[in-house]
Amino acid sequence: MAKMMYREAVQNALFAEMERDENVILLGEDIVGGMGTDGGPEAIGGIWSTSVGLFGKFGPDRVIDTPISESAIIGAAAGLALSGKRPVAELMFADFIGVCLDQIWNQVGKFRYMFGGKTKCPMVIRMAYGAGFNAAAQHSQSVHQILTGMPGLKVVMPSTPADVKGLLTQSIRDDDPVIFLEHKALYASSGEVPEGDYTIPFGHARLARAGQDVTIVATGLMVGFCESVADRLAPEGIGCDVIDLRTTSPLDEEAILDSVEVTGRLVVVDEAPPRCSLATDIAALVGQKAFASLKVPLTMVTPPHTPIPFARELESAYLPSADKIEAAVRKIMAWR
C-alpha cells in the first residue's frame, strides 16, 4: 500500500498502462502545457496535474497536446480506437461534452451496435466533473445523468484513490468506450492505494459502510458525505448501508436490491439534477424489484431542477451535503 492523492492515482494508472501497452495514447488540452512557449513543454501536465511527467517519458506521439477543439479530440480518439489504438482523451471539464456530444453519443457509443457487433472502439474519455468551487453553471456540472442514459457507453465514477487506480486501469483495458468521471473536489483527497497492477471490474459496487437500517446509494464526492453521515448516526444505533456504485453503467442492481431487502429503507444521493437521473433510475429499479421490501417511501437527496449558481451561499444551498443527507435519513427513520 502507498498513500497517494486521487489525482496521483490517475497519473499513476496512466503511467503504468502507457508503459505496459504502447497502444495507449493520450490526447487533450494542456495535458502537456507550455507547447509553443518560451517556458517550454510540461508547463502544467494537465490543469488537474493528472498527466505530469508523461510527455517527458512517452513523447509527443503518445502524449498529444491539442488545440481547443473538443469535437476533434473525441473524434480523433474514436478514429485511433477504430484503428487498433487505446486512446485516453481528456476533457478539461465535463461540461464541455456539450461541444462534442455528437462524437460521444452518435459515434463512439454506437459504432459497435450499428456495425453489427463486428468492431470495437476501446477508448476512455476522462473528464473532471462536479461542483464545490463556485465555478458556476458551465464549469460545475455532474454529467453522468446524461451519459448513463446512452447505450454503448460505460460510465465510471470513482470515489477513492484506490478505486481510481483499479477502475482507470480497467477502463483502459476494457474493449468498450468508457466515460471516466473524476470529481474535482476529490483530486486532492488521499488514501491508501495497493501497489502494482490491479483492476476493479465494472458493475460491482463497494460497500463503504455496513448497517441494517437504511440503504444509502451514492457516487463520487457524495460517497464521503454519506460515510460521514453513517459515522454520525452509528452511535445512536442507526445503521447505514452506504453503497458506492463505482459505475453507473453497468449498474450493480443486485447490491442495491439485496441491501434494500434487509433495510427496507432507501435514500438515493445524487449530485446531478433530479429529473430523469441516476437517482430516479435507482428509485424506479427499487420500485419495480423491491417494492415489497420497502417499509417507507424512498427518498432522494439531489440538487433542485436549476442550473448551478455561482455565489457561495447559492452553491451550498444547491448542493447535497452531509447535513442534508443526515436530515433525510432521520426523516426516513422517523416515518410511520
Binding site: 502545457g33 507550455g34 507547447m35 502544467i44
Partner: peptide
C-alpha cells in the same frame, strides 16, 4: 499568444 498554458505558435496551425 496563449490559450491557457499553450502558445499560439503551437496551437494555430
Amino acid at each position: 499568444h496563449y490559450s491557457e498554458h499553450t502558445g499560439w505558435k503551437y496551437a494555430v496551425g
